[in-house]
Simulated scan of single mutants.
Amino acid sequence: MRLDHLDALEAESVHIFREAAAEFERPVLLFSGGKDSILMLHLAMKAFWPAKVPFGLLHVDTGHNFPEVLAYRDRTVAEHGLRLEVARVQDYIDDGRLRERPDGTRNPLQTVPLLDAINSHRFDAVFGGGRRDEEKARAKERVFSLRDEFGQWDPRRQRPELWSLYNGRHRAGEHVRVFPLSNWTELDVWQYIDREGIALPEIYFAHQREVFQRGGMWLTAGEWGGPKDGETVQARSVRYRTVGDMSCTGAVDSTAVSLTEVIAEIAASTLTERGATRADDKLSEAAMEDRKREGYF
């Protein structure tokens, strides 16, 4: 019996979850209600079924998240009886530990709440949904990616991972980011979601939405600071390829209302999802790598 490519990817991810659960004492899964974290949770439940997932979930809430995604997050947690910790950027702004940025985006502000949550709960492994096809800096990651005692990433400290052997050794205060979806592509994710019948927030499918254009992207109006003078709001048929902070996550024009139609769009696309729809990745050529060095996802 030969596995098809989705079976092979599933088997690899399940193996990674089991290896990490066996090797670390206090793992946690980053869960935002976005498609990659939804896929990770689905794979984790497969890895440990019929037992419950042996770790909780962590969401760093910017306060500018899409309501549809937060509603999905809460429904999923309640449905499966999961433990969810929420680190809120707004709390840090309210007590002065962080300041709002002039551009209104809170994505870069997630690093401090994330690292504080990791330290306070003594998480020694953090599952993230990063994939190597998304962006140059993410392509440099190993499956088990060491972070130092300050939560910082150094690409020169990455360890070899031959024959699917993963090294989770770390000193006190350090932790490891684990990426079970490293070898998946965006198209793989959608094809697997279709095969497994995984429910997603409606934001991923074409719908009428009030948006305005900035930097070549369609952004949703909100309290974060958009639109500005001269930016006209209009109703368009759009969908989201990725979701994050509303201030930097753009929609794409689309009429795809089914998984089959979304898969056809992705297969024809020449841009990665982050390259097409994430303003924070366009700040500089090394924007993502700079944030990862500081402790970002």
Rank of each mutant, 00 (worst) to 15 (best):
M1Y: 12
R2Y: 03
L3A: 13
H5I: 06
D7Y: 13
A8M: 00
A8K: 02
L9R: 02
A11E: 12
E12L: 06
S13A: 09
S13R: 00
V14Y: 13
F17T: 00
R18G: 03
A21L: 05
E25I: 02
R26W: 04
L30H: 00
F31V: 06
G33H: 03
K35V: 05
K35P: 03
D36H: 14
M40E: 13
H42F: 10
W49D: 01
A51H: 15
V53H: 09
G56V: 11
G56L: 15
G56W: 08
G56C: 13
L58K: 03
V60M: 05
T62A: 06
H64R: 14
P67L: 04
E68R: 15
E68P: 14
V69N: 09
L70H: 10
L70W: 05
A71P: 06
D74L: 06
D74M: 12
T76Q: 13
G81Y: 12
L82E: 04
A87S: 12
A87W: 00
V89L: 00
Q90D: 14
D91E: 13
D94A: 05
G96P: 04
R106N: 02
R106M: 07
L109W: 00
Q110G: 04
V112D: 07
V112H: 02
V112W: 01
L115H: 03
R122K: 07
R131A: 08
E135D: 04
E135Y: 02
K136P: 06
V143L: 01
F144T: 08
S145M: 01
L146P: 11
L146F: 09
D148R: 09
F150D: 11
F150P: 04
G151Y: 01
D154W: 14
R156C: 08
R157C: 08
P160I: 05
E161T: 15
E161D: 15
L162D: 04
W163F: 14
H170M: 03
H170G: 03
A172I: 08
R177I: 03
V178I: 12
P180G: 11
N183V: 00
T185K: 03
D188R: 09
D188P: 13
I193G: 06
E196D: 09
I198R: 15
A199N: 15
P201M: 08
E202Q: 06
F205P: 08
A206R: 13
Q208K: 14
Q213I: 14
Q213C: 07
R214L: 03
R214A: 02
R214F: 00
M217V: 09
M217P: 05
L219F: 04
D229Q: 14
E231D: 11
T232Q: 13
T232E: 13
V233T: 04
Q234M: 09
R239L: 08
R241S: 01
T242N: 03
M246K: 11
S247G: 07
C248I: 06
A251Q: 15
A251P: 05
S254E: 08
S258H: 14
S258L: 12
A264V: 11
A264C: 10
E265W: 09
I266T: 12
I266M: 05
I266N: 04
A268C: 11
T270Y: 07
R274G: 03
G275Y: 02
T277E: 07
R278T: 05
R278V: 01
